[in-house]
Each structure stands twice: as structure tokens, then as C-alpha cells.
């Protein structure tokens, strides 16, 4: 009877540990592709649009502005906006619009998942050891 109880406890502990692994994987990279600086976060379109409607480039150098979450413009980004069509600033390279679990931005997840799986295995081994030891002592 006690063996059964012990076995059930071991299984429950293992299941709990297994359940925590996805949570670990999520927590490591809350926003994998968002640049670290607050100003680099894209601004929702619901924000005031008046700056973008100005045809006159702003005299203020964006790169010297303090980094505040309320500033919609990323660091060092030109402030000129197209007023009559065409692209005013051509980005370099290709956009990275496919975030995968194995991409560089979220590379920490693999290690966490592996570590979690190892922890589960260790927990299982400990459970086996305890059960066998209890059996050997006749408890």
C-alpha cells in the first residue's frame, strides 16, 4: 500500500515538473524579435498621426532624443515622411517576418527545454531509487 502511495507521489511530481517546461520556454524570451530598446518597438497606428503628416523634415535629430516609450520613432531613424507618395527611406536587407522557435532571437528556448527534460529524467530516477530502496528495506 505504501509502495503504491509512494509510486503515485513520484508520478505526480514528475508530471508537475514536465508541466513547468513549456512555462520556462515561454519566459525566456517574452518578445524575441522586438529590439531591446523601447524606442524600437513599433508604434500602433492608433497613435496620433500628426508627425507623419508633416511634409517638412523635423529639425530635431532623432538620435539625440531621450529614449522614452512614448516616442514612436526608433533611434536614428530619419524623421522625414512621404507626403506625396513613394518610399522616402528604403530599408536595407530583407524583412524578418517569420519567427521560428529555432531562430536566433529565441535560441534560449532550446536550452531551457533540454534542461527541463533532463530535470524530469533526474526526478524520475530519484523516484525509482526511492521506491526500490523502500522495497529493499521492507517498508
Amino acid at each position: 500500500m505504501r509502495r503504491t502511495v509512494l509510486s503515485a507521489m513520484a508520478l505526480a511530481c514528475t508530471a508537475v515538473l514536465a508541466g513547468t517546461v513549456p512555462a520556462f520556454a515561454d519566459g525566456a524570451t517574452p518578445s524575441p524579435t522586438v529590439p531591446a530598446t523601447a524606442t524600437a518597438v513599433p508604434a500602433p497606428s492608433e497613435e496620433p498621426t500628426s508627425p507623419s503628416q508633416s511634409a517638412v523634415p523635423s529639425p530635431i535629430d532623432e538620435s539625440t532624443r531621450p529614449s522614452e516609450s512614448t516616442v514612436p520613432t526608433p533611434i536614428a531613424e530619419p524623421t522625414e515622411m512621404p507626403s506625396d507618395g513613394q518610399v522616402s527611406v528604403v530599408p536595407s536587407g530583407a524583412p524578418d517576418t517569420g519567427v521560428t522557435a529555432g531562430s536566433s532571437q529565441s535560441g534560449g528556448e532550446g536550452g531551457l527545454i533540454g534542461g527541463g527534460a533532463a530535470a524530469v529524467l533526474v526526478a524520475g530516477g530519484v523516484a525509482v531509487f526511492v521506491v526500490r530502496r523502500r522495497r529493499a528495506t521492507g517498508a
Partner: peptide, 15 residues
């Protein structure tokens, strides 16, 4: 709305 990332590439929506 999206702008430019610090490395000059186009920003993408947050994950």
C-alpha cells in the same frame, strides 16, 4: 505603424 530598426532593416510587428 512600423519604422526602421537600428540596423537599418524594416521593423516587423512584435511577436
Amino acid at each position: 505603424r512600423l519604422g526602421l530598426a537600428p540596423d537599418g532593416t524594416v521593423q516587423v510587428p512584435p511577436v
